[in-house]
Design a protein around this nucleic acid. Structure first.
Lengths: 117, 117
DNA sequence: CGACTCGTACGATAGGCATCGTAGTACGGG
DNA sequence: CCCGTACTACGATGCCTATCGTACGAGTCG
């Protein structure tokens, strides 16, 4: 088997063609979600939901991950009890070349400017 | 006078430092507002509010222009009875280099993809 | 002045959404 | 089989927002 521990539970994702720029921008216009995406991009690999230590409850965290998945920014898959999250880099790059990097750069610049980090 | 017919009425704008990426993304995540920005960028000059023929009432149009101004995407100034709108290209480029062009390109690609135009 | 155009203000409405808490399901390990 | 961990589902709440209609203010032109 190529993917050993992938659960049968699976989650609805938009196809590449169904992804809308407005939806992506809306998803990224929330600070919590932008933070998730930045961390995911920095690590460059899939991360479980529980890896993120966000200042909101788990319910709210679930909500944010769903928005990111339904807008086409993330792909999610269950692996055991964990839900792994990965950026849909290829799809986004195919639809909107350069946009993701540009947004991440913009977010990084703002973080430096505001937090001095 | 440098600006002859500028009315005394003036409008609150965020300074460059006050512009937030989240706010800009939120402003552009509305189809009506994205359309306004695309048209403004295509023309490359200031346009009056009444130039835009949007499928919403004038009240709603006013609302969208205010959101764009308050997020720092547009600058607005009264000229006679008209209110002229211009993209804050320099400020956006200074804060988030390349972002505006990237977003406009993404919007254009999506328009081609969906409307075949 | 009077009429007309452009845009605003205000209130209403309906829907969306970020957040929480609690109760529940799925999976893996002892 | 039972327990703990990871995540979900559902309902509630309060706020934000896209939209409208109507009434009004500011400016221009005859």
């Amino acid at each position: 088997m190529t993917s050993p521990a992938v659960s049968s539970r699976d989650l609805p994702h938009p196809t590449r063609e169904e992804i809308r720029l407005e939806g992506v921008l809306h998803a990224l216009s929330d600070p919590m979600r932008l933070r998730i995406v930045r961390e995911l991009a920095a690590v460059g690999d899939e991360l479980s939901c529980s890896h993120f230590d966000l200042p909101v409850t788990k319910s709210t965290t679930t909500h944010h991950f769903r928005v990111l998945r339904e807008s086409g920014v993330l792909q999610q898959v269950y692996r055991g009890t964990a839900k792994m999250n990965g950026l849909r880099k290829d799809d986004l790059e195919g639809l909107f070349p350069g946009l993701l990097d540009c947004l991440l750069d913009a977010a990084a610049r703002q973080a430096v400017r505001l937090d001095g980090a």
